[in-house]
Amino acid sequence: MAEEPDQERLKALEERIAEAKRAQQPKPPKDEHYTAASQGWRMVIELVSGLGIGFGIGYGLDTVFGTMPFLLVLFTLLGFAAGVKTMLRTASEFQGGRETGQGPGDERD
């Protein structure tokens, strides 16, 4: 009979230890949190892809129409402008998401 209270206390102690271990486990990282390096690389890729797409369209149209430097320069500048605009939108998403608790891609009014 003296062992029964000890068994109950031991069981209660084991439950508390297990609960404390569960509380100490780190939570898995959320997908909304990006590192500064990944944000920077995303913006660089957006800028370079805008330039590349503009250059490709301009070169293709110049080849077809025979107006070699004109459309190439025009569409390269338009691609640069589109890349910068996309880059600024991404930067505002990250900054706004951090302030309001929203993740990238969430719509804000």
Rank of each mutant, 00 (worst) to 15 (best):
E4I: 12
D6I: 14
E8A: 11
E8W: 09
E8M: 11
R9Q: 09
R9G: 10
L10E: 13
L10G: 15
L10H: 13
K11I: 04
A12R: 06
E14M: 14
R16Q: 15
I17A: 15
I17E: 14
A18W: 03
E19R: 10
K21T: 03
A23I: 13
Q24V: 07
Q24I: 12
Q25I: 09
P26Q: 13
K27Q: 14
P28Y: 04
P29G: 09
P29I: 08
K30Q: 15
E32S: 15
H33T: 14
A37V: 13
S38P: 04
S38A: 07
S38T: 06
W41R: 05
M43T: 04
M43F: 01
E46S: 01
V48T: 08
V48A: 07
V48N: 02
S49D: 03
L51K: 00
L51S: 00
I53A: 01
G54P: 00
G54M: 01
G56D: 01
G56T: 12
I57M: 06
I57A: 01
T63W: 14
T63S: 12
V64S: 08
F65N: 03
F65Y: 12
G66E: 02
M68H: 06
M68R: 06
P69D: 05
L72W: 02
L72I: 05
V73E: 03
L74E: 06
F75M: 08
F75R: 01
F75N: 00
L77N: 10
L77M: 12
L78G: 03
G79Y: 00
G79I: 00
A81Y: 04
A81S: 06
A81D: 02
A82F: 06
V84D: 01
K85Y: 14
T86Y: 02
T86A: 07
T86S: 10
T86C: 06
T86D: 08
M87L: 05
L88Q: 02
R89V: 10
T90I: 06
A91I: 08
S92C: 07
E93H: 08
F94W: 13
F94Y: 15
Q95G: 11
Q95C: 08
G97C: 08
G97I: 00
R98Q: 12
T100Q: 11
T100V: 11
G103H: 07
